[in-house]
Design a protein around this nucleic acid. Sequence first.
DNA 1: CAAGATTGATTACTCAATCTTC
DNA 2: GAAGATTGAGTAATCAATCTTG
Lengths: 151, 151
Amino acid sequence: MAAKRTKDIEAWSVFLWTHSVLLKKLEGEMKDELGIPLTWFDVLAQLETAPDGRLRMSQLADSLVLSASGLTRRLDQMEKAALIRRDLCADDRRGFYAILTKIGRDLVARAWTVHIKGIKKHFNRHLTKNEIAVLEKAFARVIDAELRSTD
Amino acid sequence: MAAKRTKDIEAWSVFLWTHSVLLKKLEGEMKDELGIPLTWFDVLAQLETAPDGRLRMSQLADSLVLSASGLTRRLDQMEKAALIRRDLCADDRRGFYAILTKIGRDLVARAWTVHIKGIKKHFNRHLTKNEIAVLEKAFARVIDAELRSTD
DNA sequence: CAAGATTGATTACTCAATCTTC
DNA sequence: GAAGATTGAGTAATCAATCTTG
């Protein structure tokens, strides 16, 4: 029955629409204001907040929810753009650290400003303090439960 | 300041994680149980719920938030799989209707079952009635506001 | 032989250009 | 000339296979 279906998935449906609409806006603003894709900001932000400002390729891929090969290619481009570099891993010669360059560090500071402004404008601004608190708590619970279960 | 940053984007951050984790699960289940990508289900569901069970290509692309060329290619595959067909538009010979075949109608009924089961299991189940209501109302407001503003 | 990273092949999308009809 | 749909070119992801080191 269509009515039953709609009711069951209404929350999920608006969730998907919100994701689609807002991501397009945030991507557009990052591109317009700093000339980089949002995916590059994700890399920069992860590296900036990591201990010692560096991460192994595999750790970085995990935290970005990206495949190893996907990360290799993304970092190839960012290395050409001089935003990151790869450092040999001293104690494990199979591996590399991804690490911000000076240019990357300067850029990520400006990118944070753009990104936070966008989130406030397109997301937080429309929500009450209570709604934000409810969402945060609820989604944290969903993630926690789903990451633990394999099915 | 990192602490400030984190606070401002905490809700958005868990929102993104939830999207990423749950979409992978729902895609996997649709593929495992019925052998089709979730994107095909999106098409089938739109057509099933449309008046007369058919939609113009351009309308369908809009409702799926997909480019015209992206839809052309997706429907090429679904037509080969005999799930949909293209009907000439009687009153406008530039256009086509996308319409479900018998096979498509049978499949979408089963796909709804799989999809709703997945949403209940991975999303609704972890949330209270109140959280779902808050989420639904809040996100509807975000979408409404953001779709109307061009900036 | 397992783990970390890269490369090759394939896939699904986008934008720009094209073709047909309004 | 503009709109509806398709085709071509380019981009960014995935999985499977490979290479190197533990």
